[in-house]
Design a protein around this nucleic acid. Structure first.
Lengths: 248, 248
DNA sequence: GTCGCACCTTGACCTGCATCAACCCCCCCA
DNA sequence: TGGGGGGGTTGATGCAGGTCAAGGTGCGAC
């Protein structure tokens, strides 16, 4: 099954299968604390709202919106971005199925970034006030959310390191490895996948221009590390890619 | 009173005055949820351990250490940094009095970064397991910690934007503005202060070399935006500095 | 004092990536 | 069928900031 087909299947699931519950969601080991008891999962289930699919290019929320909920991505990919005072855009992250987006809104009760679907997506909305209440009675859940937020912090810090030190090759290699690892976590191929984000988004995220990103892809293709066909990526030499990410 | 003298006073306080409590700490409006009731503050007080001062250059914790606690900075400055596989160092943040450090350890129960004192510092240790328990019964405290973590996320994302887009001038200007704002929050001067971190640390944090940082300082001095005397900084033209930070 | 060292500054040169420009490919729609 | 637009690639050129090198300054040890 190629990624194209998977994509279509996902879309179909989105538009018909709203009655899924956390307990039978194939992503629950990623998005949920696996240590929760069945009864607790049901309680969590009750507060979660499964919304209708989000079309490509549409916003889940915008910078400045009142913060109400965090969202678990069920299908598709989202990007989060901020707009600087002078109108420039900065992509701060990409969010894949099983990941949680929107936690930047907690501190000020206002979203600090916007979230937009890069392809048709589906999310589970988790009203934050309910989550807070539930957390007070479910220590595991409280811990899980502390951990999720902490993970977001450490991931951002890794990106900081990447942006602060590394060459264009290292940055691109690191992104591909990240996508690869996140695919693997969802039991998809770690070596063949479709990059849902455009070259512009990649460049923006990595602090590079489109042209540079494109050149790096070409170079890695020439070196037989990747096979690149538009958005389709095949990793031919994972070790070499890792070496590139470390600045070899 | 100049910053030098303040610094000495703080040191004195560190070595003798361990009996301070949260309720009479002059930083409590920054570090604590001001919405906590007096009784709740006392409970929090009970779990907090005020440790002895941390000498310049000493570590509060190191990358890889088991995660036990988060720490509120009471005096002095700390830097957090990670070491990449190839041995390079990346400063991920500076922490001033009233701020909380160590939250990166929550996700994996292991510290993802090291924290080191840039000058003699004092911290309040807050055992995380106690904090979790207390949070379950004190919704305000739970919310406060969610907010603190969320703030760390949004701050990291701002740094990402800075590193991804901006020129050397913009980066340095942004750092100075950040230090200035954090000083103001503690009711210290927003225009005259001592940078406790070295040029190396600044460069590392901002993704620049020492030489570039030094040149930017010189340039801003020549433009009458700053007066720089080694680590002592005076902001002469705050508006110009803000314009520089926005890429004017 | 003065030695040693850590830290900072300045200058000269070099390079990796941005910038500018041209072009291709694909898809949609008139 | 052709034309327009979005996205991607490739080449030529320029410059901001990295690198290398030399020298200055402050400070603690003895």
């Amino acid at each position: 099954m190629n990624t194209q087909q998977q994509h279509l299947d996902t879309k179909k699931a989105c538009s018909h299968d709203f009655q899924v519950s956390c307990s039978n969601c194939r992503l629950n080991s990623i998005c949920l604390p696996f240590s929760l008891e069945a009864r607790d999962v049901d309680e969590l289930d009750r507060i979660i709202q499964r919304s209708k699919p989000l079309q490509k290019g549409h916003h889940l929320y915008r910078e400045g919106d009142a913060f109400q909920s965090v969202y678990a991505v069920r299908a598709g990919t989202l990007k989060a971005y901020q707009t600087t005072d002078d109108g420039r855009e900065q992509v701060t992250g990409f969010y894949f199925p099983g990941e949680i987006v929107g936690m930047d809104g907690i501190s000020k009760n206002v979203h600090a970034s916007s979230a937009k679907a890069l392809e048709t997506a589906a999310v589970c909305e988790i009203p934050f006030s309910s989550l807070e209440k539930l957390s007070a009675t479910m220590p595991q859940l409280q811990r899980h959310f502390f951990q999720l937020m902490s993970r977001e912090i450490t991931e951002d810090q890794q990106l900081i390191t990447l942006l602060s030190k590394s060459s264009a090759d290292e940055r691109v290699a690191a992104l591909i490895l990240s996508v690869s690892a996140r695919n693997a976590k969802r039991r998809l191929s770690a070596t063949q996948f479709r990059l849902s984000m455009s070259r512009v988004d990649i460049g923006n995220y990595l602090g590079l221009t489109v042209e540079t990103v494109s050149r790096v892809f070409s170079r890695m293709q020439k070196m037989d590390v990747l096979r690149v066909d538009n958005k389709e990526i095949e990793v031919l030499d994972l070790d070499a890619l890792k070496r590139l990410a470390e600045g070899a």
